[in-house]
Design a protein around this nucleic acid. Structure first.
Lengths: 193, 193, 193, 193
DNA sequence: GATGAATGAGGCTTCATTCAT
DNA sequence: AATGAATGAAGCCTCATTCAT
């Protein structure tokens, strides 16, 4: 993709994120997104196959960035404990700093069709796999219980963090999300040992 | 509500559950639900204000039944540990036995509008509060850590179980959900101590 | 179909015929047809699957009526010669008397999709087959040449009449179509003997 | 028109014929035609006023070539009978040898707007007039009936041949079109005498 | 109470055409 | 002369809800 094309591609995704955050999933017409991006409706279709394609791309791009960030941080970690703390730190910090992204991914995109959510699921997978890798590493290091059910535990970790973010959003962000990191990690680590 | 009214009220909710489980949220038109219930489209509106009202009522009724069941079981428990185990047991057992209910509440109803999901949230609240009560009890009993953040922990527990159910459904129920109870509770208890 | 349903079904087809005749195929939106019929747009879809279904039904109904008329008249004929004359008489007379129908079937519907025209072709088939039957009868009676290629000749007859009607319409109906019957039949009969 | 201009003009028409034959009238976007011609979309508009102009030009060019061919052959004919046979021969032979042209003119271009078809009608006119000339000649020669209605008969001849070609195309060209020449001419000549 | 025919708003997408480069 | 990115109008269809019977 040329830089010019990439530029407008990003412009539309950014507009989509803002419009969905402001109007909700069902209130986000293509015309609104185009207007926010300052282009004609038809132009959107030069960059995306259809509406669903915008949403999937949006999720892929943003989640891809997050996963890169996760990977980089985890590589710097000296132990599974530290890696897990990094995971939770980034998870909570990034979503607290990008409320629009948090709102769209946690609340709005979950009302989309099964089709779309399956595609989104694929974007989440690398993240789940990263958690899995950390768990395996922890068991090998001897810092996590050897009888840990990896497949089950990764769900308990992801589901726990996910629900904390959800609750924080639905509450109207009345408290700090990052302030929950220490206790969350503590709970996880105790459960893993 | 007269018994006659209650009867048809329940009939419609039952039809709705079946139709949504079979056709998905977006494929469940009022006409389909009415047909499944063996009544005319218009009759639905004699018992429910609108479509959203059906879904909220459905959730309230079924989740209300579950919460009663939770409450009864928990009262019989002799310790917080045992109560928590009961919670997880019922959560996984009931949803494994009522796949339609599981599918509709975990997958389909989450595609509904923010409005609807807020109402649904109210139905989930008593459950979350029950978990909270158990946590407080456990701290008082001395079996759970005294420094536990109750509000945060209840989310981690609920979110963890929720994600396990979700993953089980999305996987196509290829393994036993109840078989996850022991390890899930173990992880939770370790984290709580 | 109940009489009430049939009534509105016919009402919509009548409206469609008028609207297409007045606005052309591409200028005939569902909304225009509904307005002409005095009903809401959505009501159209209680009686027809989609726009194409209206057009096919229109053609089937009107051509079905014509074919019935052809069949009845032909049965009364004492010879193949007379039957052929009847065919041409009805063909030209009916279309001259129903200019809207003529215009729509000859001009407008021919700009439709291949799909639609295939369906329409099925409606025309019984007519072509009737001509074929007359030709066979004529050969058996000894009034037509025994070496006649039936499949080819039926096309020459149908195509000839079709083009005469076409030309009459495109000319703006500046002359009488029925006045062409005698000479047309004369040409055909000579060619057949 | 300079030779350079003429060259690209022809290139576009050739591309249009191929694209329409392969994709149907409704599947033939300007972008497809431009791509087939190896030029940019906008370049098309340096040579043609609009899309309709391409189609009209295509028809004019190809039908013009055919009419020239008709004229040349007819001039060599020694009698009206022979001329008529030549007409039918060329009509069937040329379309059998140029299936793309046959398909586009007989099937695809007929789905176009009334506007376009009127313009196309102008291109067909010289052909109809040629048939007319032959008929007049035949009457003068004494080989055709003196009471022949020239205007009507030319339609019967053209319409007959047109329908035979149509039917051959729709059938999927399962038989030889040129094999129909003899019997078609025989039918015509008998009808004319 | 029950019916079910009728309503009508609302949005995604295509593609011929333009025009700045 | 050539490009090709951008434009934006236009229409089919669905389905929650109503109301006359």
């Amino acid at each position: 993709m040329t830089s010019r094309k990439q530029e407008k591609f990003d412009l539309i995704l950014e507009a989509a994120l803002k419009v969905i955050a402001e109007n909700g999933f069902h209130g986000s017409q293509i015309s609104k997104i185009a207007k926010e991006a300052g282009i004609a409706d038809g132009t959107v279709y030069l960059y995306f196959k259809n509406k669903e394609d915008i949403l999937i791309s949006l999720f892929q791009q943003r989640l891809g960035d997050l996963v890169s960030m996760f990977n980089n941080s985890v590589q710097e970690a000296n132990s599974a404990d530290e890696a897990l703390r990094k995971i939770c730190e980034i998870h909570f910090t990034e979503l607290e700093q990008n409320v629009n992204l948090a709102y769209v991914t946690q609340i709005e995109l979950r009302q989309s069709s099964l089709e779309l959510r399956k595609a989104i699921g694929l974007s989440v997978k690398p993240y789940i796999q990263l958690i899995e890798k950390i768990l395996i590493q922890g068991v090998q290091e001897g810092s996590f219980r050897p009888d840990l059910d990896i497949k089950l535990t990764r769900l308990l970790l992801f589901g726990g963090m996910d629900e904390v973010v959800n609750s924080w959003l639905i509450s109207g962000r009345k408290y700090s999300l990052t302030a929950q990191i220490d206790k969350t990690v503590e709970f996880f680590l105790k459960g893993l040992k």
